[in-house]
Amino acid sequence: MTAERKMRINDVQVKFEEGETVLACARRAGVRIPTLCHFDGLSDIGACRLCLVEVEGSAQLAASCVTRAEPGMVIRCHTTRLAEYRKVILELLLAERNHVCSVCVANGNCELQDLATEHQIDHVRFDYQFPALGVDLSHGQFGVDHNRCILCTRCVRVCDEIEGAHTWDVAGRGGTSRVITDLAQPWGESQTCTSCGKCVELCPTGALFPRGTSVGGLVRDRGRIELAMAHRRHESCHG
């Protein structure tokens, strides 16, 4: 008899289906785990490390977005240690590029900004790097501001897995990585971009935005995308 599919999250008993991730189970059990690179319907890559949880009996933290639930697992999602790690990760992001919230289109509508508040971040303990990064307004409808990009690659994944154009990908390596379109050409020159705007909808920050948006004016309607994903999911090969 296979072991019963039951686990504990923050001392709450949770049942799960075969192959379900710890993140999905936690959400069903009403336990909020912070995420940034995760987006329902896209493949999970475990990149931002905000959704790390403690697994009893293991010295290593597990990224709940890519960790399958196992019978008898005991998970802790909110310990002081995890809170401190998440705080440091968010501060590292804020210091990496030029996140000037006060003049950003996504001010008041940015997942990074919200998470910083949620984690009581009132300042960044690390040196701001102030890299020189560009803004590309060559596309008729959209713009990309690399100063606000956190390299979560939602744009790359939605363009590949849902739209199927694979216009976006990541170029370079380490701190000099950057999202590009086609052969690192201006977005407006892309021969593969269908201008569907899914990437702009999913971007968690102000990096991808509809042109003409004013400061704080970016409002996102992700309903359309979630519908497209639901349609795609029933025959999606990325189970």
């Binding site: 694979h166 990908d169 390596r173 590009i180 379109t181 690192a184 593969t192």
Partner: peptide
């Protein structure tokens, strides 16, 4: 150069951005 990468992408039926991503990594 971008001509070479564009050619290789078409020859191997790979997205342009993926080929540039690999070459620049």
């Amino acid at each position: 150069d971008r001509g070479a990468l564009g050619f290789v992408a078409r020859a191997l039926r790979l997205p342009l951005s993926r080929v540039y991503g690999v070459a620049s990594f």
